[in-house]
């Protein structure tokens, strides 16, 4: 329901006198001033969690105190490594395609006779062009690029230092999933003992397609699978 503004009333004589209103305003300011001046500031970086009993100060002494970025914050990119130190990236160009700022440049190399097949020889992100939308992370089908570094791109003196190449981007904790093709089918570029270790550490992931995600009318993953099974049995 529309309602009229409650405080839009003409200036009363008391307000016209100015002094009483000035004192009322000063009372608000003084309460802040006294509390912030005589009581020490809390240094809890979570400003909401600070107790507001004594000091009302909501500031941070920035370079010394920093607010940790929340989980899920879109920070500086990183290329997720495998356990053998190589990037998980298979140079499919999905992130470069999804990027609205066209800040990702990839050059692909080929691995002969290896199920991994492709790998990035160059992976360059221009952090000055990046608009930090996080689309590259969503677009990656291999979980190879993430923005979970918890930091923003550091200031530099030169533009060229904002162009991050694979050497600087490849960092952080390595990740392996059980469905990773190099774990399932083996890879000649990864040493055998390393591969065994990676297999042991790999995280499980649901790999079963479900019918609820099939969008084509009448299409059913389960029905197709049952059909294929029936055909295989018939051959036997």
């Amino acid at each position: 329901m529309p309602y009229h503004l409650p405080q839009d009333k003409p200036v009363s004589l008391r307000e016209r006198l100015y002094l009483s209103e000035a004192i009322r305003g000063l009372r608000i300011l003084t309460s802040h001033f006294v509390r912030n001046f005589f009581f020490t500031r809390e240094t809890n970086p979570d400003i909401l969690a600070r107790s507001r009993k004594l000091s009302l100060n909501a500031t941070l002494a920035y370079p010394e105190e920093k607010v940790p970025y929340p989980p899920g914050y879109r920070g500086l990119h990183r290329l997720v490594p495998r356990e053998d130190g190589k990037p998980r990236c298979v140079a499919c160009y999905m992130c470069a395609t999804a990027c609205p700022a066209q800040c990702i440049y990839i050059e692909a190399g080929e691995l002969d006779g290896d199920p991994i097949e492709k790998y990035p020889t160059q992976f360059i992100i221009d952090e000055l062009r990046c608009v930090v939308c996080g689309f590259c992370v969503e677009a990656c089908p291999k979980d190879a690029i993430r923005m979970d570094s918890g930091e923003h791109s550091p200031p530099t003196y030169e533009r060229s230092q904002q162009v991050w190449d694979i050497k600087r981007l490849l960092r952080g904790t390595p990740v392996s999933y059980q469905y990773d093709p190099w774990l399932r089918r083996g890879a000649s570029s990864i040493p055998e003992d390393k591969l065994a270790e990676m297999r042991a550490n790999a995280r499980p992931f649901h790999t079963v397609a479900t019918d609820e995600y099939a969008q084509t009318p009448g299409f059913s993953v389960k029905a197709l699978a049952a059909e294929a099974r029936a055909r295989a049995e018939a051959k036997k």
Partner: peptide
């Protein structure tokens, strides 16, 4: 959803 992309061909194709 990511499990579909990582694990199934239908999800991966839709994603691409």
């Amino acid at each position: 959803p990511k499990p579909q992309v990582y694990g199934t061909i239908e999800g991966l194709m839709a994603h691409f």
